[in-house]
């Protein structure tokens, strides 16, 4: 039972790394798992998994991940394969390239957004 649970945790849902609230990193973070940042990172983040920026998290630099949750502050460009979610406490300044985007009421996004256009839909030509 516990073995199976461990296997599950080891898989993509485990948040393997946490940068704590009182930790600051100067430089690029890269990995293949998921990461959560509650501290400060001056540099970029590039992970194969998901990235979560906690309420107290501050990122200065570009982020590349499978998906991104922003509840803190990000200054930099974002590129995610999946969903970018900006919470009410979140603030993102920079250009994004995402498949889907959602911003909660109160969430801040300032920048350009690049999303794939749905191929099956009728294109509406600008007037």
């Amino acid at each position: 039972m516990f073995d199976s649970m461990r296997k599950k945790v080891d898989s993509t849902n485990d948040i393997e790394t946490i940068i704590g609230r009182s930790t600051a990193i100067n430089g690029q973070i890269s990995g293949s798992g998921n990461i959560r940042v509650d501290g400060r990172v001056d540099g970029g983040i590039a992970v194969a998994g998901d990235a979560i920026i906690g309420e107290s998290g501050i990122i200065v630099g570009d982020i590349k991940a499978r998906s991104l949750v922003v509840a803190g502050t990000v200054n930099g460009n974002v590129e995610v394969e999946g969903n970018l979610s900006i919470h009410a406490t979140g603030q993102l300044i920079g250009d994004v390239k995402v498949r889907s985007l959602n911003i909660a009421d109160g969430g801040v996004f300032k920048g350009q957004s690049d999303m794939a256009v749905r191929t099956g839909d009728v294109q509406v030509q600008p007037a």
Binding site: I15, I18, I52, G54, V70, H87, G90
Partner: peptide, 11 residues
């Protein structure tokens, strides 16, 4: 024991 939200809430 850490409770880590996969969303942005406090740990």
């Amino acid at each position: 024991i850490k409770i880590i939200p996969h969303q942005g809430e406090t740990v």
